[in-house]
Design a protein around this nucleic acid. Structure first.
Lengths: 202, 202
DNA sequence: GACAAGATACCGACCAGTTGGTATGTAAAT
DNA sequence: ATTTACATACCAACTGGTCGGTATCTTGTC
């Protein structure tokens, strides 16, 4: 059912190539070669490289949406443990290959936030939408377990994304996910402490 | 006493330009124009653009070193509160201009970790050295206040950097530091919780 | 302290390769 | 018979980097 039209092939290639080389270092020819078509075909579907980047950002957001929507942790009923399930799920993703667990949006926005406002905006949208979904569970958990806490659900939602984005950078710098995973475990511990989850070790 | 030799002028320009545009989008001509010399001069001091990037990474590390070594919070004697002082100091830095509080190393490594191993290595070195300095205080505080904690000082040191790097990305995406600062406040709260710092609000 | 001799710091023109993007053509689908 | 979905050929602009040259600063010698 996964239609392999040229347009989606380009988008898939964009996710792969831009995540490993960044936006500026990725040439249109790189994408054409990876997607198996020629430049004429590329510019038939996207009016510019920047246009492709925006479409790729949207596509990445949609991919992420369904990845997390279909993840097993969503079946957990308690919002707090669903939130912890989210963190565990993200830790599990780190077992894959580096360019695959990395975030296209964070990678691109880092490079182009000043020079390509339209791309920046697309990245911001994707990040914020994902953060909003995490925030939703946080808000539910907060209402139930910590209604009087001084921190806002939204800021904690963004905080999870901050830790994730930073972990990607450390993983790239270190050439592997070991330290990144430890960072996510700190994030998990923070959530446990905030919600006063009983320590399973006693 | 601050010698304005062409070489240091190029390095200063590199910090500025690469932090706003990224490594690949920064051309040698960009740097020459900003530093006020010509291409011939540039390649007299650096044998390649990549060579400059490595030198810029080292220079950035040195700048950061002295910035934090001379910061007022270093005078705090208790290592735990010195650590909290570090976080507060980083929050304070966010009051400046976006490209100025951003990390050159995180920006570059994101783009080039796969394509330019030598630059990746330089970025990793800089990040790890800074993390090690934070870790030092964490280790002291841990030994004194939480000697039996299960988390390692080193992982917490890297965690602080992870939150920072992620906060930079959010600041770039959002076009301002507001959310980033809130992230650092979460980091501060996490440290307080880990070390069971009494809540000043009662 | 003068001066030749070399090293250093920089300039400006140039080059080969690459880049994003275009113009034109064509075969299939509607 | 148009429109869609590509391929081919091409271009102007830009890229990192080279090269020969010049001004200035160092250094050793007398």
């Amino acid at each position: 059912m996964t239609q392999s039209t040229a347009k989606t092939r380009i988008l898939v290639s964009a996710l792969k190539v831009i995540r490993t080389k960044g936006y500026e270092a990725t040439t249109v020819d790189d994408l054409c070669q990876d997607a198996g078509l020629t430049k004429g075909g590329f510019f038939h579907h996207f009016k510019s490289k920047q246009d492709l980047a925006i479409a790729a950002a949207d596509h990445f957001g949609a991919m992420a949406d369904s990845l997390f929507a279909d993840a097993p942790y969503q079946k957990i009923e308690d919002p707090l443990f669903r939130l912890l399930g989210y963190v565990d799920f993200r830790i599990a993703i780190f077992k894959g290959e580096l360019p695959q667990y990395t975030c296209l949006l964070g990678t691109m926005v880092q490079e182009v936030y000043e020079t390509r406002p339209a791309i920046r905006e697309a990245c911001e949208r994707g990040i914020s939408e994902h953060a909003a979904k995490v925030t939703k569970d946080i808000a539910l958990a907060k209402e139930y377990y910590q209604p009087d806490a001084t921190w806002s659900a939204e800021s904690l939602g963004y905080y999870t994304q901050s830790v994730l984005q930073g972990s990607f950078i450390l993983a790239k710098a270190k050439g592997g996910p070991t330290i990144a995973v430890e960072c996510l475990q700190h994030l998990r511990r923070y959530i446990e402490l905030l919600f006063e989850v009983p320590d399973p070790n006693g």
